[in-house]
Write a protein that binds this DNA or RNA. Sequence first.
RNA 1: GUUUCGGUAGCUCAGUUGGAUAGAGCAACGGCCUUCUAAGCCGUCGGUCGGGGGUUCGAAUCCCUCCCGGAACGCCA
Length: 545
Amino acid sequence: MNVKTAIITTIEKTLTRQSIDYPEIEVEVPNDKSHGDFSTNIAMKLARVLRKPPLKIAEELVQASDFDQSIFTAVFVARPGFINFTVNKAIYHDLIPRINDAPSDYGTLTIGKGEHYNIEFVSANPTGSLHIGHARGAAAGDALARVLVKAGYQVTKEFYVNDGGNQINQLAASIKARYNQAFGINQAVPEDGYHGPEIKKLADEIIKEVGDRFLHEEGVEFFKAYGVDSLLASLKEDLAQFNVTFDVWFKESQLYKENRIEETLNVLKDRGYTYEEDGALWLKTSLYGDEKDRVIVKSDGTYTYITPDIAYHYDKLSRGYTKLIDILGGDHHGYVPRLKAAIAMMSGQEEMLDVELLQMVKVLQDGQEIKMSKRSGKSITLADLMAEVGKDPIRYFFAMRSLNTHMDLDLDLALKESNENPVFYAQYAHARIASLFRQAETKGYQVDPTLSTFSTLNGEKIEYLLTVLSEYPDAIEEAATKRIPHKITHYIHRLAQALHSFYADEIILSEDAVKVRERLALLHAVKAVLKDALTLVGVDAKERM
RNA sequence: GUUUCGGUAGCUCAGUUGGAUAGAGCAACGGCCUUCUAAGCCGUCGGUCGGGGGUUCGAAUCCCUCCCGGAACGCCA
């Protein structure tokens, strides 16, 4: 039973009967409890059309409409023209057995029916460790993917491995330099190379395996392959520990091997989107809103960065997804128009690719900003962070923020592991119920998840808890359609708050067996929804804390 | 200079297809543990929504303009 739908259809019926043309009827949950449980501003919208005071329209509308009295305990008009509704919270009792019967079904939607999304995120180069920026991408992309799945979309999560470009040559050269250094040869790591400690470690490993062999041989191919393989393996490991997995790991080198880039270029040439100038091949991206055309084959015959990336997206298109989503760092925003242009050329649809930009994370320590530096190899790695604070606070923290907001991460705060971190609040709510259940058992009470009729679930705290439970599907829908996974952490917080407030308000394991049984069934449902929502942002629901 | 993201409470952030008295967490302050986990609850304090104009019944939200900060502007990746 959906209350919003009931309101909308009732009003629609009235307006249609009166032959009034009406705009979309919006029903929302007011911020202020004194405005009821639901409200609509339709009378204000109609004021323009009907040329009558909104207050009067609202009153007449309420008079003429037949709102179901078993759902609504009050329908009232408020200045300047809102119609507010108070609902009988007993209608939410149905939710309890429904949730308890199939916990993961609750909030599961079908709005993505028939759609298959491909979502690409992180896609860090295999040239070093994952840092804090990648962590944000991983947390955001994974949460979004899970929310989309929950909303009924089919989703493929994908990681593009840049193992074909010039940066891999730099990687090999960097490892080689560290390798030589280990033998006392004074050779600096190239200026544009990779300076992190993980590169040194790799060189040491290689020496253990092959000794001084590459003092006499060039070994570039060996260093490339070894470096990419082992850095990729550790990326995967870090991500897995961060509770992020991918369905597809797509290697750029595969595009070269299978001649896919030439193939893609031919498609673009055949469709007349290219031309030659100054000895280079250009793509007419300005046709699709880019500020100028872009070179895709340089005059020396090599490709620019975007060329294999276009071929990669062409491959994704060929796999039949209905939508491609790329989650990119905000520093790539200038790259987006040309990529979208290329995809429009290949797919014939300008809206095929959605790009979600993540803004930079500013890291603070002792009140000072820590700058990442490629040259010194200094950066805060995901692995270090997880070792110090654990996966959950980091995931929750990133999931709390909207994707395209600039954000600050205060390390002193993050490392504190105190209640300043809101993830504990949510996990505690879940653990609290678990603890209560253990306690109930020792007192001889059974949690009965099949309980379906209730007579004692009333009072402000319980009704609020039921109301918040009822809002879960709406939260999922909004998070999925607007691509705002932080809606989920907001929901989690509201539910945890409702739980804590109720818990503090009364002794649940009282002497009244009926009351106890009904409350335990309610809490069983709350626990299940908390867990489901936490899972959407990749956070564990703990049984104990 | 152009493009782009941002500027909302002391701090970190929601709210931005125009709606009710602008919200939350943290911090601060005051209460609540002989009773199911106090990582909790209840309450208080806290705002010229960067500035200024405009549009209208109504603007944090739309338009114009200015100020401040991040980022991108390559036949680099």
